[in-house]
């Protein structure tokens, strides 16, 4: 079978999921809540989303930008995508702690060292830590399903 790739990402995915009705509405409410909660700035979550997209090699995801994180500098994003976030002075200590955590999370949440988690808690507090892991789960999940739907929906 010859496949025609349909480029789906975490933004346009919802168009394909609305057919699920009530669960799609509830899912969209979670998406809005994680991006608007006050504990982790949307710009930091956008860095996480793009880092996860890079780790998944999800081109359609990498090509989009979340409107809620418009303040994020495009040069900083490109530095992130070149994996320079550890040394680039444009990244704050808080952003580095979160991006480091995100990479461990991507590999396997069981493998996250206490020190890596504690650095996030030191910067974001306990509520911020929980808000971050909730957001990572739903952002990563949406990227994964968008990639799957790119194959299902041709």
């Amino acid at each position: 079978m010859v496949l025609t790739m349909v480029s789906m990402n975490s933004a346009n995915l919802i168009d394909r999921l609305t057919i699920a009705g009530a669960s799609a509405q509830a899912f969209d409410q979670v998406w809005r809540a994680i991006w608007n909660q006050p504990h982790v700035p949307a710009a930091i979550l956008e860095l996480c989303r793009l880092n996860l997209a890079r780790l998944h090699r999800a081109e359609a995801e990498l090509a989009m930008r979340m409107p809620l994180a418009q303040s994020l500098d495009e040069e900083k994003i490109q530095s992130l995508l070149r994996e320079n976030w550890m040394t680039d002075p444009r990244f704050s200590a808080s952003e580095r702690a979160v991006l480091n955590f995100t990479e461990w999370y991507h590999v396997d949440p069981q493998s996250i060292p206490d020190q890596v988690a504690n650095e996030v808690i030191a910067h974001l507090g306990q509520s911020g830590f929980v808000a971050l892991i909730e957001a990572l789960g739903f952002i990563d999940g949406r990227i994964r399903i968008a990639m799957i739907y790119s194959r299902i929906q041709e």
Binding site: A24, F27, I133, E134, G137, D140, G141
Partner: peptide, 13 residues
């Protein structure tokens, strides 16, 4: 798909 994301996100939390 939605159920799987919800199950996975909460268990990874």
């Amino acid at each position: 798909a939605i159920a799987l994301i919800a199950f996975n996100a909460t268990s990874r939390c």
